[in-house]
Structure formats: C-alpha cells, structure tokens
Amino acid sequence: MRRLTRIAPLCAAATLAAAPAAAEEEIGARLAIELNTARSVESGCELSFLATNGHDGDVEAAVFEAVLFDTEGRVERLTLLDFGTLPAGRPRVRQFVLPETTCEALGEVLFNGATDCAAGDLGPGACTAGLELRSRTEIGVIG
C-alpha cells in the first residue's frame, strides 16, 4: 500500500503575466482550479494548475487530497497538493511533480477534499464549497 504524501508546489510564487480569459471571468465566491498543462520531466510528471480565488478574502492555506487514477480507471495513488496562499481575485500557478509517474499513464485527478483550508472569516468550507474544476489537458479533473 502506498503512503499518502504531501507534494509542495515547485513555484509557490509563480503568477501569470497574461492570465487566460477563463481566469479573468467572474467566478463568484469560490475557488477555480484548472489543470493547465501536464508534461513529462526526468523525475516524473509535472502538473501545472491555474488557481483563482473568487472570494472577497485571501485563502492563507489550501491543501487538497488528490486521488490519481491511471488511464484504465484504477487508483494509482493518493497525494496531498499544497496550493499555499491564494490571494483574493488573483490567479496563481502551482506546479507539482509526481515522482515515478508518467503523464501518459494518468487518466484522471480526483480532488477528494481539502485537508487544510485556512481562510479566516471565509471559514474552512471556502476551499471546497462550489469548487470549480477543469482541465486543458487529456487528464480529467473531477471533484
């Protein structure tokens, strides 16, 4: 049995110079997370997510339990994706390398819930209530 591991973002402070139109649209009072790219790197599969916080306040910490499924629908592993701080109204890019995994072998990512959501007055449900998930890759994203 594989252990649940926490994957910290590679580029915690990375932002988009010119945010895609989807990130600029009014998303309402919720988080929107898009799997923007998936590329194979020497150490595994690098997933780049675009996260936008549509709430009126910052989310100081957002950690999601993710279930990775292979292309045949079998659970490959559970992991924690640490999105860090998500400021209100500002898109952020977070990159994660999944070690010993090829992008071609991934079929879907399930956001199984938030294990940590520090959102001040917004409350702990700010990370999951109305969470909008999408993908621009061949890998599906569900929640």
Score class of each variant (00 low, 15 high):
residue 88 A to N: 11
residue 38 A to R: 06
residue 43 S to Y: 02
residue 48 S to F: 00
residue 27 I to R: 14
residue 141 V to M: 14
residue 7 I to C: 02
residue 120 G to N: 14
residue 78 L to V: 04
residue 106 L to N: 01
residue 3 R to Y: 10
residue 25 E to Q: 15
residue 84 G to A: 01
residue 133 L to M: 07
residue 83 F to S: 02
residue 32 A to V: 00
residue 40 S to C: 14
residue 99 P to M: 00
residue 121 D to S: 14
residue 73 G to L: 10
residue 30 R to Y: 10
residue 72 E to L: 08
residue 27 I to G: 13
residue 113 G to R: 02
residue 122 L to A: 01
residue 72 E to S: 15
residue 19 A to E: 02
residue 103 C to L: 12
residue 58 D to K: 09
residue 36 N to G: 03
residue 106 L to V: 15
residue 123 G to R: 10
residue 83 F to W: 05
residue 80 L to N: 04
residue 92 R to E: 09
residue 64 F to D: 09
residue 3 R to G: 13
residue 66 A to N: 04
residue 89 G to W: 07
residue 70 D to L: 03
residue 113 G to P: 04
residue 116 D to F: 10
residue 65 E to S: 08
residue 13 A to T: 14
residue 12 A to K: 00
residue 121 D to M: 07
residue 41 V to Q: 05
residue 23 A to Q: 12
residue 11 C to R: 15
residue 112 N to T: 06
residue 126 A to I: 08
residue 19 A to Q: 07
residue 112 N to R: 06
residue 15 T to V: 13
residue 1 M to C: 11
residue 92 R to Y: 01
residue 23 A to H: 05
residue 38 A to Y: 03
residue 6 R to Q: 03
residue 59 V to E: 01
residue 100 E to N: 13
residue 134 R to L: 14
residue 92 R to P: 00
residue 78 L to C: 00
residue 48 S to K: 12
residue 4 L to W: 07
residue 33 I to V: 11
residue 106 L to A: 09
residue 99 P to Y: 09
residue 19 A to G: 07
residue 97 V to G: 00
residue 14 A to D: 12
residue 69 F to N: 05
residue 35 L to E: 10
residue 93 V to S: 12
residue 88 A to T: 11
residue 20 P to V: 00
residue 101 T to I: 15
residue 138 E to H: 08
residue 135 S to T: 08
residue 113 G to E: 04
residue 79 T to L: 14
residue 69 F to A: 07
residue 22 A to Y: 12
residue 50 L to A: 12
residue 1 M to Q: 04
residue 97 V to A: 00
residue 39 R to Y: 04
residue 109 V to R: 01
residue 50 L to G: 05
residue 25 E to I: 12
residue 132 E to C: 00
residue 129 A to S: 09
residue 29 A to H: 11
residue 5 T to N: 13
residue 51 A to P: 06
residue 78 L to D: 12
residue 90 R to E: 14
residue 107 G to Q: 04
residue 89 G to D: 05
residue 121 D to N: 13
residue 139 I to Y: 00
residue 11 C to Y: 15
residue 37 T to E: 13
residue 99 P to L: 10
residue 95 Q to P: 04
residue 83 F to H: 08
residue 16 L to T: 04
residue 79 T to D: 07
residue 82 D to C: 07
residue 137 T to L: 02
residue 61 A to D: 14
residue 24 E to K: 03
residue 61 A to P: 09
residue 93 V to N: 13
residue 3 R to Q: 15
residue 112 N to A: 15
residue 109 V to F: 05
residue 31 L to Y: 06
residue 14 A to T: 12
residue 33 I to R: 00
residue 113 G to Y: 04
residue 113 G to M: 05
residue 26 E to S: 12
residue 13 A to D: 15
residue 34 E to P: 08
residue 115 T to G: 01
residue 18 A to I: 13
residue 13 A to W: 14
residue 99 P to W: 07
residue 31 L to R: 08
residue 12 A to R: 07
residue 108 E to F: 01
residue 104 E to F: 02
residue 104 E to G: 06
residue 120 G to H: 11
residue 75 V to G: 06
residue 140 G to P: 05
residue 33 I to L: 13
residue 72 E to M: 10
residue 26 E to L: 11
residue 130 G to K: 07
residue 125 G to I: 05
residue 30 R to L: 09
residue 102 T to A: 15
residue 35 L to Y: 06
residue 22 A to L: 15
residue 86 L to M: 11
residue 135 S to E: 05
residue 85 T to E: 12
residue 71 T to D: 09
residue 21 A to R: 03
